[in-house]
Simulated scan of single mutants.
Amino acid sequence: MSTPPYVAALREKIGTDLLWMPGASAYILREGEHGTQVLLVRRADNARWTPVTGICDPGEEPDVTAARESQEEACVEIAVERLLAVTALRPIAYDNGDRCQYLDHAFRCRWVAGEARVGDEESNDVRWFDVDDLPELLPRFVKQLAMALGDGGPVLFGAAQRER
């Protein structure tokens, strides 16, 4: 995974101490031959299927992050339709000792254009999946995808999301 220059500069000052990082997850939907499909990427670091995810650049709005990351990671143009959830994820430690905690903004998005393909080193596969034939996903992603496919209920914030 490439580290953004501003994160590398922070790491020079604070070492491996915990960084609070705003980010976005994009649940990109389209209508396929057999119904609704979702675009997922297979992460290069752990081989898990996930929606497109990424961290916000300094001053960047989370919905803009979702659109930028979709272009960078999966080579698709999207329209961000609505916010699904805002969640403070658990702190994580990387193999090099760096620690981060992410504030994730999950969005329902609509595919607009582009042939989905691997766009950077963060993933090694990009695929459209019929929503009734998904690979194994983390529970958070399953819950948020259900929200993206739902009727547009309320945005879930951290505590409410954990209660469901």
Rank of each mutant, 00 (worst) to 15 (best):
A26P: 02
W111D: 14
R127N: 08
L149V: 12
L29Y: 03
R42C: 08
R48F: 15
S70P: 01
V86Y: 05
G152M: 14
T50I: 14
L84C: 10
G97N: 13
A146G: 06
S25K: 05
F129P: 06
E81S: 01
A93S: 14
R127F: 06
R99I: 13
I92S: 13
V76C: 06
E122H: 13
G32M: 03
Y27A: 00
L149E: 04
E33W: 01
E60W: 04
A74E: 02
H105E: 14
L134C: 10
E122V: 02
R30F: 11
R140V: 08
V86A: 13
V118P: 02
V41K: 07
A146D: 09
L84W: 10
N124Y: 00
L137W: 06
T50H: 10
D104I: 02
I55H: 12
F141S: 05
R90G: 00
L89E: 15
V80A: 10
A47S: 14
V64T: 09
R90E: 11
P135V: 14
L39V: 14
V52R: 05
V38K: 00
W49V: 11
L103M: 15
R42T: 06
N96P: 09
L134T: 09
H105D: 13
G23Q: 04
D133H: 02
E72K: 02
G23V: 06
E122M: 09
P62L: 00
L138W: 00
I55S: 10
G32D: 13
G97P: 11
D45P: 00
E81V: 03
N96G: 14
I92L: 13
V80Q: 03
D95I: 10
I78F: 03
G119E: 10
V142W: 13
A26G: 01
P91I: 05
L138H: 02
H34Y: 13
D57Q: 11
V131D: 07
A47M: 12
A74T: 00
E115R: 07
T53C: 13
P139C: 11
S123M: 12
E81K: 04
W49S: 10
E136H: 04
C109Y: 12
D95A: 15
